[in-house]
Nucleic acid binder design. Structure first.
Lengths: 292, 292
DNA sequence: TCAATCATGTAAATTCACCTTACACATTAG
DNA sequence: CTAATGTGTAAGGTGAATTTACATGATTGA
């Protein structure tokens, strides 16, 4: 264990190290971006603290004493190791891929089509998109940012609205055969599709006073298949307007109900420091969202 | 060459290192003798500077991330090396013997008899006394302090009056046979003794208007033998009152002339920092001189 | 040999990084 | 549940470090 109290001020050690490396008080000042006077005083205070002369001041140019050279070696080693460690961290940090968590639906409908643009802008940053229907929290070394649907309120996380998007219930035109449901209750006569691990359909039904109704059928499918199924007319699905925007536009799906709630997709991050790649991604995705 | 601009503040690195070693913010504060809040802020600023999360703050006790552990290793190594270097220097410095330069006469007459007292007070400090008739300057790694006769004015050195002492011309009673000289001129009829390498006799004669007088004889002897010769009645010698005090007191020598000049012995040191053993010696010798 | 230049030293004023204080809040233990 | 413990944050204070301005002494070149 290091006895910090016995160490001289780190500034003075740094000044000494810089002086040794540059060979002059003036240049050491340049290296540390301070005036030569600052260096001069630090060197003096270092000598005073150690109680040993480090320089032979008999000529104009300072020369190291034997003691001084010994200390110089130690400092060069020590600070060198520290600098290396810090650099390594900065690099490792920049290179670890950026991990984005979101729902499979959002990933395929909104994120993936745009992601190429980000990678063109930031060729150095590798990415992992982790689609998962369940809420996975950002964690150090894991997910950097999650894109979640909802209206915030996740404890211990920072949340920022990315895109407002109403919840919609969709189905293929072939499913309704021109007989579009007009009441939520009408939907219980249709088969339902639901993402594995979620209960969005129940939640939606409950929100519309149909908590105890039994629907025709419920099919749980892996996330990315839910909308595929809906497009094929296999049932109705609860989704978000954003996720099905394209399908609605080309008429592949019909939105039979749309909730005007203050909900949407959010950027969810850990509070505190954000590493550089994450910051770049957040800047980019905010801009993309604003384009919509 | 280290790129100092890229390094985070050394204080924050130190705080992080202390935190790792102690395992808690509070204890790190204790180790560095600051408040826990100071540590907390430093850690935060370090994370911000590096742009990488170093801690998992999900529970109360901070836990290091993988990045954090890596940095911790680097810092522990680096600061460890630095601390070792500094310690080594402090020790080496304290152990190198203290080197005192003075004239042989002063050494044997004044310094050596008292030196035992110093070594009793400071058993850890080894000493070298380097008697030399010529002026040897204090230098790093060499003489720590010189004790010189004169009245100052040595360029580039610090000078402090230790003992006032007139110059005296002495001879053995047997030499004068009761016929003590009363005029400086009378002395040219006696044989002279002089320290090897010095010209004190000529200086003294010149100072008394006898520059061109030829004396009976001049014998140059190694320093410590000059007074021995004088005691044996082999001639007159120029010395200082201090150096012959004992001889005068017991009547072994007679001071035939005494100059009342502002001269005496001085402590001559290099300006700047003084290592611990030197400081102790200076304190001691000032006290000894004051006793006289 | 003399000024001109260059490198370092010093003093005093200033600034800003760092610290303390004080309070808040969360977690763990009893 | 309350108390004890550990960390976070804000605001304000302080001193270490820095700058500025000038001095000194060495070196260089005319």
């Amino acid at each position: 264990m290091i006895d910090w109290a016995r160490l001289p001020s780190l500034s003075s050690l740094r000044a000494f190290c810089a002086f040794v490396q540059t060979g002059s008080v003036v240049e050491a000042g340049v290296a540390l971006n301070v005036s030569h006077a600052a260096i001069s005083q630090q060197l003096r205070s270092l000598e005073a603290h150690l109680g040993a002369p480090l320089f032979d001041r008999s000529s104009r140019a300072l020369e190291l004493t034997a003691d001084g050279r010994e200390l110089a070696r130690a400092l060069d080693d020590g600070f060198g190791r520290i600098a290396t460690g810090v650099e390594a961290l900065a690099n490792a940090d920049a290179q670890r891929p950026l991990n984005v968590g979101c729902t499979p639906t959002f990933a395929s409908a909104w994120l993936m089509p745009r992601l190429a643009g980000f990678q063109v802008e930031h060729p150095g940053i590798d990415m992992i998109v982790t689609p998962s229907p369940i809420l996975t929290d950002p964690s150090p070394g894991g997910i950097d940012v999650a894109i979640r649907f909802g209206n915030g309120g996740w404890a211990g996380l920072e949340c920022e609205r990315l895109l407002a998007s109403p919840i919609v219930v969709v189905g293929a035109p072939s499913l309704f055969k021109g007989n579009t449901p007009s009441e939520p209750r009408d939907l219980v006569t249709y088969p339902w599709l639901e993402e594995l691990g979620t209960t969005e359909s129940s939640t939606w039904l409950a929100a519309h006073g149909l908590a105890n109704e039994k629907v025709l059928s419920r099919t749980h499918v892996p996330g990315n298949l839910m909308l595929d199924g809906a497009r094929n007319g296999q049932g109705v699905a609860v989704s978000t307007r954003i996720a099905v925007a394209e399908d609605l536009a080309v008429g592949r799906l019909i939105a039979v109900f749309e909730d005007r709630l203050d909900a949407g997709y959010n950027l969810v991050t850990r509070p505190g420091v954000q590493r550089a790649p994450l910051k770049a991604f957040l800047r980019w995705i905010r801009r993309e969202a604003a384009k919509t």
